[in-house]
Amino acid sequence: MKNKRENFDNLVKTLSKSSEENQNSEKISKNEEKTVKISEENYKIFQKFKIKDIVFLAIISCIMLLTGAFMPLVSNIPIFGIIQICLGLQFSLFPAIGMMKVRKPGALLFMSFFSGIVLIFMNTIMFFCLLLCALIAEALTILIFRGYKSDWASFFAATLYLPLTLPFLYLWYKFFYSFTGEEGQAVSAFIGSDAGTAIGMCFAVIALCAVGAFIGVIITRELKKAGVIKK
């Protein structure tokens, strides 16, 4: 009788051991699958957006809009690059922060769209210009940096974003006013009589945007160190 009981106990022990081993091996394989998935996701250039990304980008766009609320006042002044000079700092600082937190291609495009929804009534031309420029800046960043993993990628895209509107605005004015036969007049009013001034303004816009993007990168790095923004 005793022997039978011992045999039965042994059998139960071996069975429980084998089931535990099976469970452990399953867990290990699941963990391995998870790590593989995570590493694959990290390796991907194009990643899906989550709600928290969209919310952050929308709030950042809202700040961009608020800081650029004086745009309708400036947009009518016929001086080349006046809009970009006035908006340069805030339209590079906040996108840099947005792209440093949401390191996914399309972040800049989302920001442009969200700010453009309100901007469309303030300056319709600027809305289309910003969307196009965001697209080009993103494409260039992906080509050069292969995504937004490096901080320099965010800096590059944020610096390039607003200065790109300068040539597009020129083209737009040229196209727009050609309907009324005042093409030359409009373009000369936009560019100004002095080409040197226009070139100087271009450099000023680029420098201003670079400073803004740099401050944005520094702020985000500091917040990452403090643990406010998670990696």
Binding site: F49, I51, I54, V55, L57, A58, I59, S61, C62, I63, L65, L66, F110, F113, F114, S115, I117, V118
Partner: peptide, 18 residues
């Protein structure tokens, strides 16, 4: 939905940010 949500936030968030 990403566009709808973002747009709603942009419209309704200005007073909060101020």
């Amino acid at each position: 939905r990403s566009l709808t949500i973002g747009m709603l936030i942009v419209f309704s968030f200005m007073p909060t940010l101020l």
